[in-house]
């Protein structure tokens, strides 16, 4: 990976040779943790934690969220360490700390390993080992299974690798309940099924980037038409999976309405992507679907979050079963 990464580390020469001296700022290390991904992780984990049956001490709950966020950040740093060569090629990632020359790959690796160990041990010892084990598995899955193996070898990379991003609500649930239940798995399934249409919408207009980096994304390997077919298929699956929490009784009436309406809009936008078939050179349908997909996930987990807060504060909960 080294040859493609810009060597901007400051070199200081003396009689014994040249020493690389880091000029990385704390902000560079923070960037290694992929703060935007961390935000989504924190949000979904918090929702999973609040929806789960049972109670958790607020301080322990706060530390749990911190551990999950730092664990996610650690896997981001490990991803950037391994992917520095392809990050340097793609416009979207060329300014990341390693290709930009602000942090060395070794510094990123050490940072990622230390944070991984710290977050998993703290969560395991302080909360429970179901949550700690899940966090460890998530980091392993993202850094090793997805980054090192799947990403460069199969167009199904983000389908299987999407599991890493789907674990946080399950970990949040496990922090409170101490177990893995069907409800936690449903929260996992929502993000898991959501990932392919979300990511492929982006991949369709960033195809050339992935091509340059030799990353086998679905549109580059099987073509745009097949990708659009698959996006529609996943969206068809996502609509009922998204409503499942309301049907199972851990999402309320508001959630039922929000998930049904936004699921229908998601499906409509995916249908437009499928229908246009890339005729629009600006790929507006794809961009619209990508933008809405982010809103969709925030809407679903945001509603679950708000309903759980209202229920925990007031004891009021309107369920779909009470209306039907």
């Amino acid at each position: 990976m080294a040859p493609l990464v810009k060597e901007k580390m400051s070199s200081v020469e003396n009689s014994a040779g040249i020493y690389d001296v880091s000029h990385a700022m704390p902000g560079d290390y923070f960037s290694l943790m992929k703060p935007r991904v961390m935000r989504l992780v924190v949000f979904t984990a918090l929702a999973g934690m609040l929806v789960a049956p049972g109670a958790i001490d607020p301080v322990i709950g706060l530390i749990s969220i911190l551990c999950i966020a730092i664990g996610a950040g650690a896997s981001g740093a490990l991803n950037m360490w391994f992917d520095a060569d392809i990050d340097a090629v793609m416009t979207r990632t060329a300014n990341r700390p390693i290709p930009a020359g602000n942090v060395t790959a070794n510094e990123a690796l050490n940072f990622g390993v230390v944070l991984s160990v710290l977050s998993v041990l703290t969560l395991g010892l302080l909360v429970n080992w179901v949550a700690g084990g899940l966090l460890a598995f998530t980091i392993f899955f993202y850094a090793v299974i997805y980054t090192m193996w799947l990403k460069r070898s199969t167009p199904q990379n983000i389908v299987i690798g999407g599991a890493a991003g789907a674990f946080p609500p399950m970990i949040g649930w496990a922090c409170v309940s101490g177990s893995l239940t069907l409800e936690g798995i449903v929260l996992f399934a929502i993000i898991f099924v959501w990932t392919p249409p979300h990511f492929w919408a982006l991949a369709l207009w960033k195809m050339r980037d992935y091509d340059d980096a030799h990353v086998p994304m679905m549109p580059n390997v099987v073509g745009e038409k097949s990708t659009r077919n698959q996006m529609l298929a996943y969206s068809l699956l996502l609509a009922p999976v998204g409503v499942a929490p309301a049907l199972m009784g851990f999402g309320g009436l508001t959630y039922a309405v929000v998930s049904a309406v936004s699921g229908a809009v998601f499906l409509w936008l995916a249908y437009k992507v499928w229908l246009n078939g890339g005729e629009d050179a600006r790929l507006m349908a794809e961009k619209r679907l990508f933008g809405f997909s982010i809103f969709y996930l925030f809407a679903l987990f945001g509603t679950l979050f708000l309903e759980a807060v209202v229920f925990r504060l007031t004891g009021i909960q309107y369920l779909l079963a009470g209306v039907l």
Partner: peptide, 16 residues
């Protein structure tokens, strides 16, 4: 052997 750091390197080290 002593390494003389530039002002930028000193600033970043202090921040770290």
């Amino acid at each position: 052997e002593r390494v003389a750091l530039t002002e930028k390197q000193q600033r970043s080290r202090r921040s770290r």
